[in-house]
Design a binder for these strands. Structure first.
Length: 174
DNA sequence: AGCAAGATCGGT
DNA sequence: CCGATCTTGCTG
């Protein structure tokens, strides 16, 4: 586990997605773009966990789109929703255990579609390695203030019971 | 080849 | 509440 201040290493993202979801809010998403480095505190994430999770894109098994979720943690999974918005996800867990965290909210940039637009993130980031990338990574700046609350995930009623009610949305309240 | 649905957002 | 906009994955 990376306890020193600085970039979170791959081992952090090899944990189970629910563990990463508890630990990620309060950490910083860092984007380097045209020589500028911008840091945004992560405030809200949502966990998608395994083929059995009927809300997870991996519920139908590996496909061209979801194959990155089957790789080991620390890579980005990017997809387009409604033909309009890019969604930013971080793959977690061990290889062959498809999991990902949707980044739903940053400090000053709420909403998963808005934040990718604000940070200039598109499908060219699919498969990007957070441990090695020169343009996007996550930093630990020490303990966050505030508490983390959980809520059901948004927009996944189609998943049915029990998946639609799992409290797998994690929000940092400050 | 055709089609229905979607981890959203902004405007009425 | 509705439309935008287009990829994905299922069906045949």
């Amino acid at each position: 586990m990376s306890l020193i201040k600085g970039r979170l290493k791959r081992d952090f993202f090899l944990q189970d997605v629910l563990e990463v979801a508890r630990q990620l809010p309060g950490r910083y998403l860092v984007r380097e773009n045209r020589g500028r480095v911008e840091r945004y505190m992560i405030l809200e994430v949502e966990a998608y966990r395994g083929e059995e999770d009927q809300a997870c894109h991996a519920r139908r098994g590996p496909t061209p789109r979801t194959k990155v979720m089957y790789r080991s943690g620390g890579l980005l999974y990017i997809y387009l929703i409604y033909g309009i918005h890019w969604m930013l996800n971080i793959v977690t867990g061990e290889e062959h255990h498809p999991q990902a965290l949707l980044i739903r909210g940053l400090d000053k940039v709420r909403g998963p579609g808005r934040l990718t637009r604000a940070l200039g993130i598109d499908d060219s980031f699919n498969g990007e390695d957070l441990g090695l990338s020169e343009r996007i990574w996550v930093e630990d700046h020490g303990a966050a203030t505030g508490r983390i609350i959980t809520r059901p995930r948004e927009g996944i009623d189609y998943a049915g019971e029990p998946w639609k009610d799992k409290p797998w949305r994690f929000i940092l309240e400050q």
